[in-house]
Design a protein around this nucleic acid. Structure first.
Lengths: 182, 182
DNA sequence: AATACAGTTCAATTTATATTGAACTTAGGA
DNA sequence: TCCTAAGTTCAATATAAATTGAACTGTATT
């Protein structure tokens, strides 16, 4: 980063295509970018990626690579990687304009997909193997001391119960997120 | 870290109080520590902290500072800070033995408390202020272009809906986690 | 075929986070 | 009082993660 933080709107005139961007528009974009950057760590993505999503979200028309470059002070490398990540997780879609060779992007507003994918990745991935692991651990409880063995088994059971509950919760959450169209 | 990873069981004899630890016991502890260390990033805690919790969880009796020092190859500084963190979040409890001056710790198995605190911290913290923020953003939508304004408002509405749904989900999750005693 | 544009790749660098280690408390014997 | 054990603190260091930037790959345009 050349400055101290990722901020929006450098306003390099040569990159602002078709008409000017009023200060109102610029301020709006900056506010949206800020919103997503603040949510970045909650979602577990780097700030640069959140900022790119912000620019695309804030623009009523499809956004090109160079427009992102003009709005954010981050390198082409980061933009390229960031756009790829956002496409992979389904946060943005490419809308190819037949005429122009530039790739254009719009936000994919089906946040359900995003939310579900997020859960699968961060929870299910660890949760499923975990269940078996705890079973193994229960079998490995040292048996020498009866009282100690009982306590350890109790602890592992507690862990397993909790584990089960979280797994049961996942379908509930999924259903909930599907309730209204996103 | 002197080695390459946090591993359990150095077996320094002078620190193994009252009787030896069989290889069975040592292996069990190592397996538990490994389990928690692997879950560390899911829970958002450093590995050293997860490892300390593992040692305490794996021991049928209360565990002292020096026992942790003997089981894990991490510095006293990390142990001190790690124990403090674990106490703060309610993952372990101090059980002072009147006779000994050493502090002894046991795991707090009420994982509900932990889970709830985790949610409050990672979700509620960002979620509540977020709701107002989106409202502000809707008011700041540039009005110059009617079609564009409509689309941007639609996007923000979508974001707000999703936001609301997640907030409604929190009480459901809380209830669910309370169903069985932890 | 040369130039320019649009984007990619990845080693090098910066920034953020975790861990160490040595100096420092504090309290209980000798 | 002096010593030692038990922890704490925090600046220095090591490790991990994000970001840059320069060289590279294609693909139109002249």
């Amino acid at each position: 980063m050349r400055d101290s933080a990722i901020t929006s709107s450098r306003m390099t005139p040569e990159l602002l295509r078709s008409g000017e961007r009023s200060s109102e528009v610029v301020a709006f974009e900056a506010a949206i970018v800020e919103f997503f950057v603040e949510a970045a760590d909650l979602l577990g993505v780097p700030k640069s990626v959140a900022a790119i999503y912000g620019v695309i979200f804030a623009a009523p028309q499809p956004v090109s690579f160079s427009e992102i470059e003009a709005s954010l002070e981050i390198s082409k490398g980061s933009i390229s990687q960031g756009l790829r990540v956002l496409q992979e997780v389904g946060a943005i879609k490419e809308v190819s304009a037949a005429s122009d060779r530039a790739e254009l992007f719009v936000p994919d507003l089906e946040l359900r997909k995003l939310a579900l994918r997020f859960m699968e990745q961060r929870l299910a991935k660890h949760l499923t193997p975990g269940a078996e692991r705890i079973g193994e651990l229960k079998r490995a409880v040292p048996a020498a001391n009866k009282v100690a063995a009982k306590e350890l088994t109790r602890r592992l059971q507690s862990l397993q119960d909790w584990h089960t509950r979280v797994r049961q919760l996942l379908p509930v959450v999924k259903t909930f997120l599907k309730l209204t169209p996103g």
